[in-house]
Design a protein around this nucleic acid. Structure first.
Length: 663
DNA sequence: CGGACGCTAAACACGG
DNA sequence: ACCGTGTTTAGCGTCC
């Protein structure tokens, strides 16, 4: 029964993932599928609105539409907020996720990940962070403005609405939040730009799609194409100019700028304001007052029309105006495009809200930890705990600013909920256990969730965290209970499992000690044991790749490597600060170097990667181990050495070395 | 399908 | 006799 439940849980995890993936997939599919009709449908839709409101002035119409859009956005927000983890109405969720997709590669990748690879919060964060860092450097200024604009808009347009609470963070938080948001936006936009650049050429065909699904699936990324697709020769009209005067114009401008590569500094004013307070007005004013030069119009820049998807070349402003009036008059198409643009903005707003939420969660996690109620009171205090509380505290927050967001939804972890088995999958991916652990330390500690690691991994972790790298069975038990709420129950079961694992795996060596017997880890064996499959596994690799983006891949991979060789290393954060220092040395030695625990602050934790088999690692480990053991006064670690040295172990014989062979 | 793994359960042996 | 520690074996499930 236990097994069953376990497998079930595990299964649930994957399904959840798939769910996400499917969502995105659907969104995508919707987009492409609708391609054929999208333009028509969308256009019609928009047209319908326009028609129905035909009596309104363009400005009013637009305003009206915008309001509607905002409302929708609000709804989305609410839905998202409420339905973050609850199965809610699929549609809304889908739309939400669809919206998210463009937001970050990480997220996207997450969706693509295999079930097992659900990015753990930290992992996700890591990815985000890395990406953000990258983008930040390049586009911070630029996007800052944009974000501000959105923010402003949002605030302005929403009557101090529901979002308030979120924004009601402390100043500090706000600042932090904004930064994060900006970064995220940067990243998002960067992606957009990249994609756009690559896709622009595709335009017509692709453009076709999404309008219809826009409300839900539209992602900024699609816009360019959308625009293009829709952008059939326009109908004559005369109000286009007026439109610009509307908020919408601002919106559109904003969106446009989003869509367009940063390099193309839109006349829009995106000159970075020092204080980062580019208001729509400001930008507008700037542009308008800018001068009479051709580039003074928000929609005009670099000699071309910036109307989404247009890019028509205009020699001067006059010509541009003319172009605007003719090509982008207040007609169905333009209206539709405006709508799209509004939606884009909405999406961004939604995203913003979402990210804000996330940030809050993060903040809460990082800063409120102390006050956080712990479901299970402090675990049994460990009698022989080397690191009393240490384990991760400070490091976690310090080292990983961006961390686990979710105790609630930890990727796979949460899924395991109660089931007993983490399965191989977990095993495979759990080598980076330290990272994962470090980052979700609090979560696991408090949540009755089965950690996605194998017993062997956990045991190893427990042992390695010790300065001496040796623990008595009881200490191991204590570590388990201390680190995981989950193990505060069913003691009989997991303890038995622990013992079983200790006995079963050669990587765990029992050493007679003065005060009894202690267990140590034979890294070499451990590495050996884990099939390098991970590395070799096409699937895994693929997943990794798909799941990781940009530098994340490297980082995570490195982390994985480091981890595999030595968990602690890769994640000093995992250790408590104090203890970390103690441990680090060891690990460093062992690892052979990772002195720097990945700047990623461990956040770069990769999805549970299986520990790559790195021969040298093994070696490294081996050595230290030996030496240590030998030298260790109180700790007689003879046995392990022997095996390491090369003594024929029964078990060893059985297993074939992957070739990582230390030598 | 089979092998490798992982998990749980359980039987046994030993020593305190 | 009981308990904690270790060792083994068996059955099952998952993944490749």
């Amino acid at each position: 029964m236990m097994v069953e439940s376990a497998s079930e849980t595990i299964r649930s995890a994957p399904s959840g993932q798939n769910g996400v993936g499917s969502l995105s997939g659907q969104a995508d599919g919707g987009g492409s599928g609708a391609a054929g009709t999208a333009s028509g449908g969308a256009g019609r839709d928009a047209a319908g609105v326009a028609d129905s409101n035909g009596e309104m002035s363009p400005a009013e119409l637009l305003h009206f539409q915008q309001q509607q859009a905002l409302q929708v956005a609000r709804q989305f927000l609410l839905q998202q907020a409420s339905g973050l983890s609850s199965p809610g109405n699929n549609e809304s969720k889908q739309s939400a996720s669809a919206v998210q997709v463009p937001v970050s590669v990480a997220m996207m990748s997450q969706q693509m990940l295999t079930p097992q690879q659900i990015l753990s919060p930290p992992q996700l964060q890591a990815l985000l962070q890395q990406q953000q860092a990258l983008m930040l450097q390049q586009l911070q200024e630029y996007y800052k403005k944009q974000q501000e604009q959105l923010h402003l808009q949002l605030l302005t347009q929403q009557q101090a609405g529901k979002q308030q609470p979120k924004e009601a963070l402390g100043n500090k938080q706000l600042a932090f939040q904004q930064q994060l948001l900006q970064m995220q936006q940067l990243q998002q936009q960067h992606l957009l730009n990249l994609q756009r650049q690559g896709l622009v050429s595709l335009q017509p065909s692709q453009a076709s799609g999404p309008l219809q699904t826009l409300p839900q699936a539209v992602c900024p990324t699609d816009l360019p194409q959308l625009w293009k697709g829709e952008g059939a020769p326009g109908q004559p009209a005369e109000d286009s100019v007026r439109q610009e005067g509307l908020d919408l114009a601002g919106t559109a401008a904003t969106a446009t700028s989003f869509a367009s590569p940063p390099k193309v500094s839109p006349p829009l004013s995106h000159h970075p304001l020092p204080n980062g307070q580019p208001t729509v007005l400001t930008s507008r004013r700037d542009s308008s007052s800018h001068e009479e030069t051709p580039s003074s119009h928000p929609l005009y820049g670099h000699g071309e029309c910036k109307w989404p998807g247009c890019e028509t070349l205009c020699e001067d402003l006059g010509q541009f105006i003319k172009h605007l009036n003719t090509e982008h008059a207040l007609d169905d198409r333009s209206t539709a495009q405006c709508r799209v643009q509004m939606q884009v903005v909405q999406q961004l707003e939604i995203q913003l809200a979402k990210e804000s939420e996330r940030l809050q969660a993060m903040m809460a996690h990082l800063h409120m930890r102390p006050s956080e109620p712990k479901p299970f009171s402090q675990p049994v205090t460990v009698s022989a705990d080397p690191f009393p509380d240490g384990l991760v505290h400070p490091p976690t927050s310090a080292a990983a600013p961006v961390t686990p967001l979710r105790p609630p939804g930890l990727g796979s972890a949460s899924l395991h909920g109660g089931g007993p088995a983490r399965r191989r999958s977990s095993d495979k991916f759990c080598s980076p256990i330290s990272s994962e652990l470090a980052q979700n330390h609090e979560f696991y500690k408090n949540a009755d969730v089965r950690p996605p690691f194998t017993y062997a991994s956990l045991i190893r972790q427990a042992i390695l965290e010790t300065p001496d790298r040796q623990l008595t069975l009881n200490e191991i038990y204590n570590w388990f209970t201390r680190m995981f709420a989950y193990f505060r129950r069913n003691t009989a079961t997991w303890k038995n499992a622990v013992r079983h694992n200790l006995s079963l795996h050669k990587c765990f060596v029992r050493v007679e000690n003065v005060k009894g017997a202690v267990w140590t880890v034979d890294e070499r064996e451990y590495q050996k044991r884990r099939p390098p499959k991970m590395t070799g596994s096409p699937t895994l690799v693929k997943n990794m790749i798909s799941g990781l983006s940009y530098g994340a891949l490297n980082a995570s991979y490195q982390a994985a490597l480091a981890e595999s060789s030595f968990p602690l290393l890769s994640n000093p954060s995992m250790l408590n600060p104090g203890s970390a220092s103690n441990l680090l040395p060891l690990s460093q030695d062992d690892t052979g170097a990772p002195g720097e625990p990945l700047p990623s602050n461990g956040s770069s934790s990769p999805p549970r990667l299986s520990p790559p088999q790195y021969s040298h690692q093994v070696q490294v480990k081996e050595e230290p181990t030996e030496a240590e053991e030998d030298r260790r006064p109180g700790a007689p670690l003879g046995p392990p050495n022997a095996s390491i040295v090369g003594p024929p172990e029964e078990r060893d014989l059985e297993e074939e070395l992957p070739g990582e062979e230390l030598s």
